[in-house]
Each structure stands twice: as structure tokens, then as C-alpha cells.
Design a protein around this nucleic acid. Structure first.
Lengths: 244, 244
DNA sequence: AAGTCATTATTGTATGACCAAACTTCATTT
DNA sequence: AAATGAAGTTTGGTCATACAATAATGACTT
């Protein structure tokens, strides 16, 4: 053992913890304090072995865990790059698990219902709080949405974009992250579904009604229109995917 | 190589993927199809080595990843036990990342704000949808909450319990999971904060007002009381923890 | 039959080796 | 001098082996 900056100076581990856990804590600390900066690669595995007096096995385990948690980004055969934990990383991490969860019956519906809940309060809030810029953004999104009627894929994109504005209005970075998550988890169903011009038209008009309710500063109507809109959307996919 | 049930029969890997990734897919498949049942331990590492023709290094890497994703539960020195992915596992997985994220300035406030949003719509929904059992549950929670006034720690528990009921009413398993997450992420602040009987009293009365608004089937008042209550709670902790 | 202890099985860690891909260096060419 | 390209070097990915520590097992004792 070289043991210059050894982690467990007393070597009193071995019983309860794994050596890799100590290493993980070490790197997390380094990332937190900025000794390892964002975008910077970790030292080579063999250097870590030297400087911290652990085996390469342990180093690799630690790095793997860090990668799994999203703290570093490990491309095949490249040095792992530090990626300071943010909502995107958190999302990537949980995405794996949730994606697998979503194969279970009923789970997509449950998730969609939470989206209805959250968006309900978001449109209510938009009705009372929306600034001039927010209204403008909604209006523009509405226009591009209308122009996409008939183009199935493009309509889906502009649809998502319209809804995304509600997640932006409160100026809370958590909310857009949540919207991205919803989109990622739910879109495999929606985006594959062929939609007719007629359907597009119905959905566009629903958007319009929500928008108008917000203009009128009427949260109850806005929420009602949103719920109706999302319920209709759900029925569309439910009919298309019988397996839910 | 024994190569009886080899994963990559053509051995055409090596370029893009890691051997461990193939193994992970293999186990995920086995868990999904039920060949590996919930609660059952994985085979010993050496058996896996034999049967799949990979090195123990690779097997361990795969198991570690599965554990990090929450698909198996790996206690130190025990065989990993299959845990079918559920919300709890998802929560455990993301908890690490978010916990670290929460040290950044402003992030706790952002997270708390999303809680305000979600709970706002939950109390609204409770106002319109709550069944007799739900009302009873709220009432009981309110009583134990009142009885805990003066006992700082117990009051906190009963407080959390009162709020948890709103997450249960919609009968959506995702919501209680979200509540647990909020509690876990935000409670380190709250639970450590000493609270006076006076504070307890104020919070209890806020709960009572919310409860009464629900009884009156008055969503607007319920939401307003909730927002006031949570804003007050936030100010309490903000004063206590200047670093936010 | 129940408890105790030795044996075995299995995980955690260390070490060293090798390969192939990525990176560096430096001479060659233009 | 700059661009190119061909070496060598570094480094991650995988394998094999060994040993220590601990859990599971089974034999033994009482």
C-alpha cells in the first residue's frame, strides 16, 4: 500500500461498509467542494489506485456507482466526466427505474393522473399569475399548434410545446424537469399514435379554450377545460392501446 | 469458456457495449418474465460465471448496477435479493442524487414550492371529492395533531401524518410515494427545528381551518388556507436556516 | 432435540495480466 | 509551417487467481 492520502487511515473498515462506499463519499466530497470541476474527467483508474491505496477493483466499483447515480458520465472506453448533480441527472437516474415500472398494468394511468393533477393547478395559477410575456408565449404556441393540424407528428410536438409553457410560468426549474419526465414516460404511447386532422382540430380547440379562460382570468374554467382536454386525450390512447 | 447459455453467441460485442450491459439486460428480462421471482436471491456469482461464460468481474459489475437501480437489494456479504421495481425502489434510487442536489442554494425552496403546488390541487380535490372515510381520517389526524401540541417531535410527526392524508385520497399509489419523497427531502430542515407550543398551536389551527373548508366543500378557501399555512411554515424554517 | 463448533460456500478485496480503443508524440509530407 | 499519418503510450474493459472475512451448513456434543 502506498497510502499517501489513504481514505481509512485507521483501516477500521472491513466489517460494515464496503471500500467502494468510502471512495464514493470521497469523490462526492471532491465534486461538492469543487476540487473536481464539472466537465472535468476523473483521474485515470490507476492513478486513483496509487493515490488512495485501494485496489482497482474497488475504484471501478465506485466509478460505476457514481455513473449509475448520474454524478459522472461514463462513456464506453472514455474517462468518466464529472456531471454535477442536477435535475437532469436525477431524471436520467430515475428514468431507468420508472421506465421499467411503467410496463405494469395501471401504472401509466396512475402517472397520467398525477399529470392531470399538476397541470390543473398550473393552469389555475396561470389564470391568476400569467404575465404579458407568458400570454404571448401561449398565444404563439397556440398559433404554431394550429398550423400543424394535419401533420400528425408535428402536431404532437407543438402540443407538447403548448403544455410546456404552463410548466415554465412559475419560474421554478423543477417544473420543466417534471414536464420533460412526463413527456419522456408518456410519449411512447402518444407519439406513435396516428392522429387524424379531426383529432388535431379537437385538441387544438381545447388548447384554445384553455387559453381563452386564462385570458379571462378564470381559473375554474381553465381547469375544467384542461381536465376535459386531458381526459379526452387519455381516451384516445386508451382506445388505441387496449393493453392498459 | 464453458459457453452453455452464452449471452453473445457471436462474440460480436467488444466494440460498442460492455459485457455487463448484456448481463443486466439478461437479468432484467429474467425478472420481468418471472424466472427470477421477487424475494428470491440471485444465483451465486460463480454459478453465473459458469452458466453465462463471463468473468466474475463482469458479473459483479452487473449486480452492482442492478442494485443501484433498485432491482435487487444487496446487503453487504449477502446474496442480492430480487426486488421488482416499484415506486419505493425508484425513490431510493433518486434519493441519493436529489439529496446531493438539495445542498445547492435555492433548491430547497424550489422543491418546497412544487409541494405547495401539488398540495394545493390535492386539498381542492379533497374539498370536492372526499368521501366519508376520508373526512374521518382527516378528523382523527387532526385530533392526534392537537394532542401533540407542546411535544416538538411528536407534533412534527402528526403534522406530516395530517398532510399525508391528502396524498391518499385520490387512491393513486404514485402520490403517497411523492409525499414520502417530499418528507424525506424536506424533513431534515423541519424535524430538527425546535418548535414552541405557540407555533404548534398556530399550525394546528391552520390544519383545522383547512379541514373545515373541506367540510364546507369550499375548494377556494381550502387552497387559500393551505397556501397560507405552508407559506408560514416556510418562513419558520427560513428564519431558522439562514443559509437557504 | 437443542445448542455448539468446525467446515464449506460465498462475497469482498487485492493483484497482475492482457487486449483493444483512445490518446500523444513525433517524424514525414505537402 | 501546417497538415498528415504512423508509430508508441495510456487507459478502460475483461479475465484469472488468490486470500480474507463472513454467512450458511452440517456434524458433533450434551
Amino acid at each position: 500500500m502506498k497510502n499517501s492520502t489513504n481514505l481509512n487511515s485507521t483501516n477500521a473498515r472491513t466489517r460494515n461498509s464496503r471500500a467502494a462506499d468510502d471512495l464514493i463519499r470521497h469523490f462526492v466530497e471532491q465534486i461538492k467542494t469543487g476540487q473536481l470541476k464539472e466537465g472535468e474527467p476523473l483521474p485515470p483508474e490507476r492513478k486513483i489506485v496509487e493515490s488512495l491505496g485501494v485496489s482497482r477493483t474497488v475504484v471501478r466499483e465506485a466509478i460505476l456507482s457514481l455513473a449509475n447515480k448520474g454524478l459522472v458520465e461514463a462513456r464506453h472506453r472514455y474517462r468518466p466526466v464529472v456531471r454535477k448533480s442536477n435535475f437532469d441527472a436525477a431524471f436520467d437516474t430515475v428514468n431507468d427505474v420508472v421506465s421499467r415500472f411503467l410496463v405494469e398494468p395501471g401504472s401509466v394511468k396512475n402517472l397520467f393522473d398525477t399529470r392531470i393533477l399538476l397541470e390543473s393547478i398550473l393552469v389555475r395559477q396561470a389564470s391568476t399569475d400569467a404575465q404579458k410575456e407568458d400570454i404571448t408565449a401561449l398565444n404563439e404556441a397556440l398559433i404554431t399548434n394550429r398550423e400543424a393540424i394535419g401533420n400528425s407528428e408535428l402536431f404532437y410536438q407543438t402540443d407538447v410545446n403548448f403544455h410546456s409553457i404552463f410548466y415554465k410560468i412559475p419560474q421554478n426549474p423543477v417544473l420543466p424537469a417534471i414536464h420533460r419526465a412526463y413527456t419522456a414516460w408518456l410519449s411512447p404511447r402518444w407519439s406513435k399514435m396516428p392522429s387524424s386532422s379531426q383529432n388535431n382540430q379537437i385538441n387544438y380547440e381545447a388548447h384554445q379554450k384553455i387559453y381563452e379562460a386564462i385570458l379571462m382570468r378564470d381559473p375554474d374554467t381553465a381547469e375544467e377545460c384542461l381536465r376535459e382536454h386531458l381526459a379526452y386525450a387519455w381516451n384516445q390512447v386508451r382506445d388505441y392501446f387496449q393493453d392498459i
